[in-house]
Structure formats: structure tokens, C-alpha cells
Design a protein around this nucleic acid. Structure first.
Length: 724
DNA sequence: GTAGGGTTAG
């Protein structure tokens, strides 16, 4: 009977078994053909086709559901339809190729399924991401009196962690203890993952600490758990602890630790881990290459990331494309991200929903309305036109590209709206200083029965502070409690901004002192910029000191303090801040503005003469200066002179990058065309006043996106109401 | 004879 065991290898010689071949096989011709010499007597042949291992190898080698249908038919004909082992095998086979409904049919038709079969159907649902069904089957199984075992619990725990049902999770944990799996390593690993996913990382840690025999899976579960809960440093500490044990990292553990380094942007540690990857000889592992690409891209070494990307052996790996595209987008290389997305499309590689979202995110950063429309068009023609995540990203993109109307169009077309989509639209209005629209939408959302969340309120509060609606903002802030939403630093900083801008500086300060959580960078930052508006040097200096201790290497805080001194004409202190920055080795950002003309982006720096039409641009600038003077415009010379936020002072104030972009827009577009400009820094006082007047003089709408928000200049006024 | 950990992301 030795030849029976060679059957699997005979079958696998056929790289892809066709239904016809399976059929042939089941008709014995196959066996006769291949094994004729081995079969001495007909009864041996008969024995062979009734043996489990014969069918087992057939099932294992089936790649199509029709194979399994035929095998099942043959089992029935051979009277083997009640063979537990083979039917369980078939259930597994069906679920492996995604035919969960046939697996369920086999299960339902089996008279008295045993624990093995129950585990098989539960695992089938788990593999096919049908977690509600996992729980349903688990309940049913207990109802019929079967005790779950060490194979049942990992699947059930996975389902709990995907469903994020904390109550259910606790119940299952209780079952685990009752049935005696309180120290089984596979089951406990599942608990670690479950608690980490539910945000109870401390509970996960308790389970992990009590684990007697920690495997690489246990370590990976706790390390990635910390990483997912935003505690990357603890994740890394545990990784180092693991390296002092006998447990050797494998590629999955390295992927999750790489993710932790990516989250904290720790280039040096990440490079060390890369070394570790090479030492373990796992550097060709495709998914590890994706993680390395994502890591280097996020940390700014896009060229290194790109070299990994270019080495990719399977060009159709969407995750690799996603890692590179999102890496470019996150790191200020938005145009490269869009280019890569386009090249992916042109190569006929199917993007998934994440690719599309990353590309839209990149388009939002580029700020070009033409590109935004192209992306919108792409989505409408694709299978993602109904994807709630993609639509939300589109709304955000249009708002960031200056067209809150188009954002609203996308929003109105969406058939299903969840809280994130409503919040994105509210945020969009906030960005454009249309606070009343934001508030109106908030009420409409509640009317639709959608409950606001913390993000909704960030949008609302931002909108109120951008428009100076102090009373409304204050009321909304207090509404949060009614929805059981805890205020975060972002909410507090909006309120500080709201009070501070409107001149209630003392109230803002008292508000900070009363905060139940430690005030963060954003809160003190809001106070400092409010101090600049009302020229409150003492309080501003206090805020700045807090900022310097919390976030010492952020150029922005020094710039803000310097602006505060400049607004109070304290030039010696302005100079002092400059020295302070030099000592810390901080350099100020180079300002630039981008304008889109006929779908092409033109970038200008301060005093930029490099454009082919520089001569015409400067003629236009001079013409504007003359007209501004004629209507009595007085440049804010002194403050600009010392304002570190803006481009190096040139002889003429009008050559800040946004003014050059406006001039270029005016000479290249038809009268009445709206100009759309994006600036990387905040708008300067002088340019802001000048552009307001220019919008009136040339009868144009000029929309400027600065680092914080949008300014819609029209008829001599700005939508920001001069608060920014 | 069955199983557990990970990556891209509104």
C-alpha cells in the first residue's frame, strides 16, 4: 500500500488541477494510469479510494470550488458523507478559497458536528472577516453543550477584537478562565491583542506580564499593542527587553516594531532595526520591504524609500505603492505622490481604497483645484464612488483646495453620511471662516440622528474662533459634556484662541489655569498668538517660556515671540530672539507661494526673478504699488522689517511671494477670474492689507490658503475679518 | 488533524 502515500506528490505534479482532472482522478482512470504498476490487486485499488488520505490530498490540492463540489459528490456516492474528518477537511477547504456559504452548508447538513467541526466553521468565519458570525456560532456551540477549547478561543478573541465589543470581550475572558485556559499561551496572546485593540493597554500588559512562556507572538502582540495605542516609546523599550531573551524576532515582529519607529519618526533607531533585519536575513521578505519603505519615506529619506520601492520584485503589490505614495504625501512630497499615483494608473495596476485616499490626501496638499477636480472625476468613474472613506477625503481635499462649494457638492451627493463625513464638512466651513454654515450643519446633523464626536467639536470651535463667534463657541464647548465627549488639548486651545483673539486675554489665561488636563503646546501657542494681537508682552513671554520648555526646537514659537515684540516695537528683544534662535541652530522657513494657471503650478519665492516673465510681473507689481499709494495705502513697514516669519526683507515690501503670485495671476488670466494662491507660511500683515485693497481695485476675488486657514479677499475685505 | 502576532489609512 506504499504507493498511496505517493499520491499527493503525483497530484501536485499537476501545477493547477482542473475540474476535469479531478473528475478523471475520481473516476479511477487517473489512479490506474499513474499507479498501475504499484497496484497488485483490484481490492487494493478499492481500498485506496476509500481511504482518508486519498481524499485529503485531493481536498488539499483543490484550488477551485468546483473541485470541492465534485469531491463532495464523490464522498456521497462512496457513502463517506458522514466521515467527520473528511467533511471537516472540506469545510476548511471551502473557507480557504473564500466559499464560506458552502462551508456552512456542509456544516449544517452534518448530523452531529463534533468540536473539530465547530472549530472549523468558526475559523472559516474568522478567516473571511465575518466576525458577527464567529460570535453567533460560538454562542450556538455552547448552547448545544460543547466546551470550547484552545482552538476555539483564538478565533473568538480575534472576533471580539475586530468587533471592539468590550462587554463581550470580558464575557469571553470569563469563559476562558472557567474552561481552564487561563494560562494557555495561544489563548493569552489573543487576550493581549484584544485588550490592546480595545484601548485597554494596561489590561493587555497585565495578561502579558502573567504569561509564563512568552513566544515571539506574545512579544509582538504587546509591542504592537503599545504602538497602536500611541505609546511607541514603551513599545520600543519592550522590544529591547525582548532582545535580551532567547526569543528571536521574525519578519512579522520586525514589521510591527518598524511601525512603532515610523510613528515616532525615530530615524536612528529605525536604521538600527534595518541593520537587525539584514542580520536576521529577512531583508527580502516582501512585507518587511514595505515597512522599510514606509519608514524611510515617513522619516524624510524619500530617496532611500524609493530605492526599496524600485527594487520591488512584484510590481503589482498595491501595499508597496500605498507605502510609497502615502510616504511622499506625509512628507511634503505631494506632487511626487500624485505622479506616482498617475503612473500606477497608466500601468493598469488596480489601486485600492487606501491608494485612492492617499492620492486625494496628496492632492489636498498640492492645493490645485484642477488636480482636485481630476481626482474627483477619477473617483466618480471608479468603484470607490460610494466609498464613505474616499468621499470624506474628497470633501477634505476640496475644502483644502479652496472650494468649499465643491466640497459641499460632494457632501450633498453622498447617500450615506457618518459622523466623520459631517465633521469633515464642518471642518471645511471652519477653514474658510464660514462659522454660521458650520453651526447650521451641526444642527442638521443632529436632526439626522448622527451624534457628534470630538472631531466635530474641533471643527465647530475652529470655525467659531476663525470668525470671532465667541458666545457661540463658548456655548458649543460646554455642549460637549452633554454628548459625553472629553475635551482634549485641541478643544482647549480653540477656546483659548476664541477668547484671546476677541480680547478676553485674562479670561483665556484663567481658563488655562483651570484646565483639568496638563495644557499642551497648542494651548500655549494659542495664548501666545492672542498676546501678539493685543500686544500683551508679559503674558506672551510667559506662554513662550512654557512653549520653549515643552517644544524647544520648534522655530514657530520663536517667530511668534519675535512677532509679539515687533508688534510692541521692542526691537532689542526682537534681536534677542534672533540670537536665541541662532544659538539653538534654528533656521527660519523659507516662504513661498504657489499659483495655478491653466492647470500648471507656478512657485515664487520672495523677490523671485527666476520666472521667464519676471519683467512683466515686476512691471505689474510697480503698477499696483502706485495704485495702492493713490488710494492712501500705508505700508506696515516697521513690523514687517523685523518680522521673522516672512521672507528676508527686501528693499521693496511688495515683493513678498504672495504679492508676486497675485501679480502673475493678474497678468495671465482674464479680467474677473478668481485667483487661487497657496502660501506655506502664515499671511503677513502688510500683504494681507495690500491684497484686500487690490481685490477691490482690480475687481477680483483672491483666495489665499496660508499655513492655518483660507483668506477670501473680495471688495476690499477678507473673510477672516482680519483675525488670523 | 485544526490556531495566535504585522504593514498602507477618513
Amino acid at each position: 500500500m506504499a504507493w498511496i502515500f505517493s499520491l499527493p506528490s503525483l497530484i501536485t505534479k499537476h501545477k493547477k488541477i482542473t475540474p476535469f482532472e479531478i473528475h478523471t482522478c475520481l473516476n479511477l482512470k487517473f489512479i490506474k494510469h499513474f499507479c498501475f504498476s504499484s497496484v497488485q490487486h483490484p481490492h487494493e485499488l478499492d481500498h485506496c479510494i476509500k481511504s482518508n488520505s486519498f481524499y485529503e490530498s485531493l481536498i488539499d490540492n483543490s484550488t477551485h470550488i468546483t473541485h470541492l463540489y465534485q469531491i463532495h459528490d464523490k464522498l456521497i456516492v462512496s457513502g463517506l458523507q458522514h466521515n467527520r474528518f473528511l467533511i471537516t477537511k472540506l469545510v476548511n477547504g471551502c473557507s480557504n478559497i473564500g466559499h464560506i456559504f458552502y462551508a456552512r452548508k456542509l456544516f449544517d447538513e452534518f448530523p452531529d458536528p463534533d468540536l473539530f467541526m465547530w472549530n472549523a466553521i468558526i475559523r472559516s468565519y474568522s478567516r473571511n472577516n465575518m466576525y458577527m458570525d464567529v460570535i453567533e456560532m460560538y454562542r450556538w456551540m455552547r448552547l448545544v453543550g460543547l466546551h470550547p477549547d484552545k482552538f476555539t478561543f483564538p478565533c473568538v478573541l480575534k472576533a471580539c477584537s475586530e468587533l471592539l465589543d468590550f462587554g463581550l470581550s470580558c464575557l469571553v475572558h470569563a469563559h476562558i478562565i472557567v474552561y481552564g485556559f487561563g494560562s494557555h499561551v495561544f489563548v493569552q496572546n489573543g487576550l493581549v491583542v484584544l485588550y490592546a485593540k480595545c484601548g485597554c493597554i494596561d489590561m493587555a500588559r497585565v495578561v502579558f506580564d502573567r504569561l509564563y512562556d512568552r513566544t515571539i507572538v506574545s512579544w509582538t502582540a504587546i509591542i504592537s499593542g503599545y504602538a497602536q495605542n500611541g505609546e511607541a516609546l514603551e513599545a520600543l523599550r519592550l522590544f529591547n527587553q525582548m532582545r535580551n531573551t532567547d526569543v528571536k524576532p521574525d519578519w512579522i515582529s520586525l514589521v510591527s516594531i518598524m511601525k512603532a519607529y515610523t510613528d515616532v519618526d525615530d530615524l536612528e533607531q529605525g536604521k538600527c532595526l534595518h541593520g537587525c533585519v539584514i542580520k536576521t536575513g529577512l531583508e527580502d521578505e516582501p512585507d518587511l520591504l514595505i515597512s522599510l519603505t514606509a519608514f524611510y519615506a515617513k522619516c524624510g529619506l524619500v530617496t532611500v524609500a524609493r530605492s526599496f520601492f524600485d527594487q520591488m520584485k512584484t510590481p503589482n503589490n498595491v501595499m508597496m505603492w500605498n507605502a510609497m505614495i502615502s510616504g511622499y504625501a506625509k512628507n511634503g512630497h505631494a506632487e511626487e505622490a500624485v505622479d506616482l499615483f498617475r503612473s500606477m494608473i497608466s500601468r493598469n495596476i488596480q489601486p485600492d481604497s487606501i491608494t485612492v485616499r492617499s492620492a486625494i490626501l496628496a492632492s489636498a496638499q498640492v492645493g490645485s483645484l484642477k488636480l482636485a477636480q481630476w481626482m474627483d472625476d477619477f473617483v466618480r468613474k471608479s468603484k470607490y464612488r460610494g466609498d464613505i472613506f474616499v468621499i470624506t477625503t474628497l470633501i477634505d481635499m476640496y475644502a483644502k483646495c479652496g472650494s468649499v462649494e465643491s466640497a459641499r457638492g460632494v457632501f450633498d451627493r453622498a447617500s450615506v453620511k457618518d459622523v466623520v463625513m459631517w465633521s469633515a464638512m464642518i471642518m471645511g466651513y471652519g477653514l474658510h471662516g464660514q462659522a454660521w454654515e458650520a453651526i447650521y450643519l451641526y444642527h442638521a446633523m443632529k436632526q439626522e440622528g448622527v451624534c457628534p464626536n470630538d472631531v466635530t467639536f474641533i471643527g465647530l470651535l475652529t470655525a467659531c474662533s476663525h470668525s470671532g463667534l465667541v458666545k457661540q463657541g463658548w456655548e458649543l464647548f460646554h455642549c460637549m459634556r452633554d454628548f459625553g465627549i472629553k475635551s482634549r488639548n485641541e478643544h482647549y486651545s480653540c477656546v483659548v484662541d476664541l477668547l484671546g483673539r476677541a480680547g478676553y486675554l485674562d479670561q483665556a489665561f484663567v481658563f488655562i489655569l483651570k484646565m483639568p488636563i496638563e495644557p499642551g503646546v497648542s494651548v500655549w501657542g494659542a495664548l501666545l498668538s492672542a498676546c501678539k494681537i493685543s500686544r500683551s508682552v508679559t503674558l506672551g513671554e510667559y506662554a513662550a517660556q512654557k512653549l520653549f520648555s515643552l517644544d524647544p526646537y520648534n522655530t514657530g514659537h520663536y517667530v511668534q515671540l519675535s512677532n509679539l515684540y515687533a508688534s510692541s516695537r521692542m526691537w532689542d528683544r526682537v534681536a534677542y530672539v534672533r540670537v536665541l534662535m541662532k544659538e539653538k541652530g534654528l533656521i527660519k522657513y523659507l516662504g513661498y507661494s504657489v499659483i495655478e494657471i491653466n492647470g500648471k503650478l507656478h512657485t515664487f519665492h520672495a523677490g523671485d526673478m527666476s520666472h521667464p516673465r519676471a519683467k512683466e510681473i515686476f512691471d505689474e507689481l510697480q503698477r499696483q504699488e502706485r495704485r495702492l499709494k493713490e488710494v492712501g495705502f500705508v505700508p506696515h513697514t516697521e513690523s514687517v522689517l523685523h518680522d521673522l516669519n516672512y521672507e528676508e526683507k527686501e528693499e521693496n515690501l511688495c515683493i513678498h511671494s504672495e504679492r508676486i503670485a497675485v501679480a502673475y495671476g493678474l497678468i495671465t488670466t482674464a479680467p474677473g477670474t478668481t485667483l487661487r494662491i497657496t502660501k506655506n507660511l502664515r499671511a503677513c500683515v502688510n500683504c494681507h492689507s495690500a491684497i484686500k485693497l487690490i481685490s477691490k481695485l482690480v475687481e477680483r476675488e483672491i483666495i489665499v490658503r496660508d499655513a492655518n486657514r483660507f483668506h477670501h479677499f473680495k471688495d476690499g475685505l477678507c473673510s477672516c475679518g482680519d483675525y488670523w
